[in-house]
Design a protein around this nucleic acid. Structure first.
Lengths: 243, 243
DNA sequence: GGTCATCTATTGGTCTTACCACTAACTGTC
DNA sequence: GACAGTTAGTGGTAAGACCAATAGATGACC
């Protein structure tokens, strides 16, 4: 209720060990390549059980700070690229089916974006959307890749919701989907008839937002996202058949 | 030197357990919020020692997939914890206005849930929904708090989407909103006329899902969420005025 | 009848001991 | 000097015991 007292977190032994060793590594007392004492010795030195110590070492290995191998002494690893393990990313990357599931969420979130944007877009934001649409027309004429303008358009819609949380969530999804979709842009979405359709759909969404017609905006957004998902899926199937 | 033979890497037991549990979570066999068996039972089921199992659970906790707490059973966390949940929590707790912004996201996601559920719900899932509705009627009659049945109903809808990612995202929002909403349940949502309306709205969503009418389902869901948000907001304003 | 403190079963956290599997260094034989 | 065989030391796993925290049941009290 009040912020005077903060809850006390009982620290586990293994965590304290992790902290201690981390400090040693970051201070340079343990240089990369250096070996740690054997588990038995270290446990004795820290006056903890080997189990607790092993939990800590395991965690440190998980962070990429140690290299543990049976028979050899465990040694400190050079800190290089510490890859960030985002479960959502690894979920999406596991299979295309998973990827589509994430895209499906985007479909409905995008509907909400369009609806909110129609309700709240300022005249400046509508102007900006129009400008972006012109850009996309230009891209189509000159047969340039429209990935960036497409992304900008959607971002502009999201911004018009005036909902910071919404913007964050959408950005997260865009980041996640972007990589895979870029491939689609260079392949499936390259065909002129498809790009024409996409442009038309964008225009329809824009018009609804401009007219502050929330219901129509969400409907047009749904149509657009459904088409994009379907086109992309069918393109994938073709690619699989080819190979 | 030649690529005929590849070195055999002895896999540690804990790693295999990690892989196994990860698959269960990503497949949706272990849904967010669900609890795992106790360490002793799980170790027996996997026919490994508790130490190995604990190593695996520890690693999974490090990845943010599990929540381990002494005294409680360990439970599955949404895979969106890193990317969505944590940032939103710090955002939502800043002010009630922010909180409402998060609720707004839920509004549209819930629409999508209803739509997908209408398209994909099996007869068993529809049966379950009906049972939960009966439970809510009972709650209303006996003037019991309906927070849990309400939550169960929405969770059942989400489960009927058959989209694991969607389930995790919704769980994320539920976790986030739950705390604040529980207060509302003991206060604003306690009034009988409001609870009657909520029940009716739930029934309407259910009927649309049962009839596999996606469009109607999403529309009913939107009505329900809009009403809930408005009621809750107006209640908050009153409470502020009181104090 | 409702509210509160208390007790109890269960869970995760830690420790100890023992044994297995692997590695590298040592050792003796050829 | 080269090689197989031994051995000591390493991390990996197992089993059993106890500690500490939690939730739910129980019971006393108002």
């Amino acid at each position: 209720m009040n912020a005077l007292y903060s809850p006390i977190k009982p620290k586990r032994i293994s965590e304290e060990i992790v902290d201690q060793i981390k400090v040693l590594i970051f201070n340079g007392d343990l240089k990369p390549g250096e070996t740690l004492p054997s588990e038995r010795d270290l446990a004795k030195a820290l006056s903890v059980s080997r189990v607790s110590l092993r939990e800590a070492l395991n965690a440190l290995q998980g962070m990429g700070l140690l290299e543990i191998q049976q028979g050899n002494r465990t040694c400190v690893r050079p800190i290089t690229t510490r890859s960030i393990h985002d479960p959502l990313v690894s979920f999406a990357k596991k299979s295309l089916a998973n990827f589509i599931k994430v895209f499906e969420i985007r479909k409905y979130l995008e509907m909400g974006c369009a609806s909110l944007a129609a309700q709240r877009a300022t005249s400046e934001e509508i102007e900006r959307l129009e400008k972006l649409l012109k850009q996309m027309e230009e891209d189509l004429k000159r047969n340039r890749l429209g990935a960036k303008s497409d992304f900008d358009f959607h971002s502009a819609i999201v911004a018009a919701t005036h909902n910071v949380a919404y913007i964050h969530v959408m950005q997260t999804l865009y980041d996640l989907l972007q990589e895979e979709l870029r491939i689609a842009y260079g392949d499936i979405f390259r065909k002129k008839d498809i790009r024409k359709k996409l442009l038309l759909q964008h225009q329809n969404v824009f018009k609804a937002v401009r007219d502050h017609d929330a219901e129509r905006a969400s409907k047009e957004a749904l149509i657009h996202l459904c088409f994009a998902l379907e086109t992309w899926e069918s393109g994938l199937i073709k690619n699989i058949e080819k190979s």
